[in-house]
């Protein structure tokens, strides 16, 4: 398991060295896999992203260190946050806000704590960090801010939103790696991974890649049957239940 990423890394460094960068600094990145298969034993996965910072003669010497921010975003979904409010003697979910078109999972992996990497304005512009990726509600909807904060907090607690300050490690000053987590409850779809290179609080390069999460084998068969042939699926499930019930009455027959 160790040999393969290392070999990939070396091949990759050679490739990166030959690449001619148009800008002062460039990024070459590679994901350890572009496919995550959900099978019966799936409990989450971890991909690894490798990257090389390429430089040429025109590259200026930087004062501070390079910062890398890897952002992996899952498919988009409509989310609901509910708030329990007092209703007579009981507490009930009477308030709710809908958040449309937000990524279902987000993993932000960085070299340093996000606030240290760039100013809030630039973070918003580059879309760096969870705060910047979940848009703040517009003017005149001040009561929505707690719902947005609760959304981020609850999805972080559920492991769907992740922000890790020390997840990106430099193997050499130019080569870095970061583990990209895929949560156990990740939905199927295309996950976009973008890697930003920053120095002195300014973004100087950005690359994107992606991976696909899909169900495989038996899980895929069941999932598709439930969606494409619901009558058959429902009837077979009911038949299964009936025959298991019948079997139990035969096996455990008492009279």
């Amino acid at each position: 398991m160790v040999a393969r990423p290392l070999a990939a890394l070396l091949a990759f460094a050679a490739l990166a060295a030959s690449a001619t960068a148009a800008r002062a600094e460039g990024l070459v990145v590679s994901l350890s896999s572009h496919h995550v298969r959900i099978t019966q034993t799936y409990t989450g996965a971890e991909l690894v992203i490798f990257g090389v910072i390429t430089r040429d003669r025109s590259s200026i010497a930087r004062q501070g260190p390079y910062d890398i921010v890897v952002t992996a975003k899952g498919p988009q979904g409509l989310m609901v946050v509910r708030e329990k409010v007092r209703f007579g003697p009981i507490w009930a979910n009477l308030e709710q806000r809908k958040f449309g078109a937000l990524p279902v999972t987000i993993a932000v992996l960085a070299t340093r704590p996000i606030p240290d990497i760039a100013t809030p304005d630039l973070r918003t512009r580059y879309g760096i960090g969870l705060e910047a990726l979940i848009p703040k509600p517009g003017f005149g909807s001040a009561e929505d801010v707690p719902f947005r904060d609760a959304l981020i907090r609850l999805r972080r607690e559920a492991g769907l939103y992740v922000e890790r300050a020390d997840a990106v490690t430099f193997v050499t000053p130019d080569i870095f790696r970061a583990p990209v987590p895929v949560p156990s409850t990740a939905p199927v779809g295309t996950y976009e991974v973008s890697i930003a290179l920053l120095a002195d609080g300014v973004q100087i390069a950005r690359e994107t890649t992606n991976f696909e999460v899909s169900k495989a084998g038996f899980e895929q068969v069941l999932f598709q049957a439930a969606r494409d042939r619901p009558w058959l699926y429902g009837a077979l499930t009911a038949m299964m239940a009936l025959s298991m019930g019948w079997l139990a009455s035969v096996v455990f027959r008492r009279d």
Partner: peptide
């Protein structure tokens, strides 16, 4: 569960994929 003040008044509903 309904009468006691909830520790966290917020909760997530189901997510609908687009």
């Amino acid at each position: 569960e309904a009468v006691i003040r909830p520790a966290d008044p917020y909760s997530l509903g189901a997510t609908e994929l687009r």
